[in-house]
Design a protein around this nucleic acid. Structure first.
Lengths: 374, 374
DNA sequence: TTGTACGCGTTATCAG
DNA sequence: CTGATAACGCGTACAA
């Protein structure tokens, strides 16, 4: 009967009671006391690859279970310099992506033992405050689905905090980025519509400070120019339902008539445009007007809409961002790559796509047309 | 020229350079060195109500700014026993609420200096893991918009971690709760529809483990029973678009005909039901069938739907939950109140509401009917 | 394999 | 108002 073994067992019951009754949380020292080992032994038992004897491990774990012990993350991160938290900065405008993006990010980060500290950003001022908190909390890495001031990006470098931009392309190629290729997406959409015979385009773009909207718009315009089609009229919206309707009316006013096709910078605006055209103005879509969106949010494939649009592989992108930030954290030297994802074209039924169209042109598509399913 | 003042200034430049070049983060000790004060003086300068002389404060702040110093949250929380984080547990099913709920929670918590640690829950297993991390991170409080095992709720008490349930009513009244009164909402909707002459009801409810869906369903049934109307047929869905369509077909099959009204446990199912009725089955809504949802997510008021539904005051509820958890954190003794919010009735245009209806009954409403706006 | 001793960066206490 | 000093709870060399 060795003292180190017997002593703790004898006083275990009372010890446990005492510790449990105490208001303060249980520490590794408490566990050590009950298990009859040193505090460091306890610590080692909770570290994956540590060398502990079976018997010690068992005793410690039993004591830990009895006391409901869990290691204190703050104390741990103080010494390991790892908070096990990844900050996610996200614009409120990204509304419809929140769920899929956040769920997938969290799913991918959890296996790495990391959790998401969330910073929803409504304004520039929010970004400032968020950054301060970011440094304070000492997050291991950051995924930013929001526009950051250039100064901020530099600060990440200086503080050696891994940063992954999400759907924000920066000129600075040294910043890790995961994004959909919005420029290519814009081109693709324009090309498909042009091939079907559309000539007069209208664009409803997002607010000026959204790089995503800008890239898409540039893609559309570049493609149209390349095809020798007239420069489209452009109106600016706010990414919401109402902007779609307002944009449609503006475009009609500017053209003096209904254009051939309207491309919206996101699906919600496209749906607003579509509803306004059909229910308010009595315009036949896609017979008289083609409407296309960009994003493929869930409602876009509901029967009432069945929107022609482009789908970002959001789950894949989220997973890629999570993996990337983890790699940057675990392998500090690893270089910051830029990952671009292609958008998937979704035909829907709000645009004429396979029709030679009124303005002729030898359309490269000859499939039977599932026009106007509705 | 006092030594304490001069020395730091003299070596400031080199000191700053040295500290900045060093990879490790700047500490309060570094700032103290540069400012020529003690470390505790620096600490005090960053604590709101501390007593520091103007000159000391100025010197410290200057040094801190030069060095880009920010306090380390982990170290702070180690001693203050405050992590300044609030955990938010949220079911993936709550999909469409994510944005509004999270943004509002964050908005309300930030002024209290707290940030959101996010735990999206997809399964029971996720909940288990989330809880462990919760204890580890030592969050100051928890807002749970997800179903927790009874055991877990008890554990919160034992560990003295404030818990606020969101839209989950527990029998245990000692648990703080913010919720919409889903039972009353169900009653209200049933009453309005019954008053308009509907007699044969169908219900598309959510999966069995959703207390929200259950409460709503019970409300509807209680009201119908009270009015002496026949017990409605009930089918179970999964809260998604497809479930609405499938539910509609099941109900028609069970009744052998189209019922008077269908109430869905959420808007997405109601929209699925609506689209299926109109576009697939050619049923006139609301002429032949009334469809009502519960939730008022954004798409429900789009022109194509204009759904009759009930709106939870989500922003208010979120704010209330945030305030409540803050109070529980700051005033440990404060009792856990239960806050119920009423749902707002949204008429929409998918249900006949002001019509005496085919089955007579003296309807208490006599407004001119904006029937079939679409 | 195990225990000792120290340090992580901060706040709190207390004497000056 | 200020500075020394002691925690906070844990990980980790180092010695045994």
């Amino acid at each position: 009967m060795r003292k180190t073994k017997q002593t703790p067992v004898v006083c275990a019951a009372s010890k446990i009671a005492e510790i449990a009754s105490r208001a303060r949380p249980v520490t590794s020292y408490d566990v050590a006391l009950v298990a009859g080992v040193s505090q460091s032994a306890v610590s080692r038992c909770f570290k994956p690859g540590a060398s502990v004897s079976q018997s010690t491990y068992a005793r410690v774990m039993k004591a830990a279970a009895q006391l409901d012990y869990v290691p204190n993350a703050a104390a741990r991160s103080l010494i390991t310099r790892r908070s096990n938290m990844v900050a996610v900065l996200i614009t409120n405008r990204a509304n419809l992506y929140y769920p899929e993006l956040l769920a997938e990010l969290s799913n991918q980060l959890t296996p790495h033992g990391k959790r998401v500290l969330l910073f929803p950003l409504a304004s520039e001022a929010d970004a400032e405050r968020a950054l301060v908190d970011l440094w304070q909390f000492g997050v291991d890495g950051v995924i930013a689905a929001a526009q950051l001031p250039a100064r901020a990006v530099a600060e990440f470098k200086r503080r050696h905090v891994p940063l992954v931009l999400f759907n924000r392309l920066l000129d600075d190629a040294s910043v890790a980025t995961v994004s959909c290729d919005h420029h290519a997406a814009g081109r693709l959409l324009a090309a498909r519509l042009a091939a079907a015979g559309h000539r007069q385009f209208g664009l409803i773009t997002g607010s000026k400070d959204s790089p995503v909207a800008i890239a898409r718009q540039q893609g559309v315009c570049a493609q149209l120019a390349e095809l020798g089609l007239p420069t489209p009229q452009i109106v600016t919206g706010e990414f919401d339902y109402h902007s779609g309707a307002a944009g449609l009316k503006s475009l009609i006013a500017r053209y003096g008539s209904v254009p051939d096709a309207i491309i919206c910078a996101n699906d919600v605006m496209a749906i607003g445009c579509l509803d306004c055209a059909r229910h308010e103005l009595g315009i036949d879509v896609p017979g008289q007007l083609s409407v296309a969106g960009l994003d493929a949010v869930e409602p876009s494939n509901w029967l009432s809409y069945n929107l022609t649009t482009l789908r970002q592989p959001m789950a894949q992108m989220a997973a890629a961002a999570a993996q990337l930030v983890c790699r940057l954290i675990e392998v500090p030297g690893s270089d910051a790559r830029r990952q671009l994802f292609g958008a998937e074209f979704i035909e829907g039924a709000t645009a004429r796509l396979h029709q030679p169209g009124k303005n002729a042109g030898n359309a490269p598509f000859s499939l039977p047309l599932p026009l106007a399913i509705m």
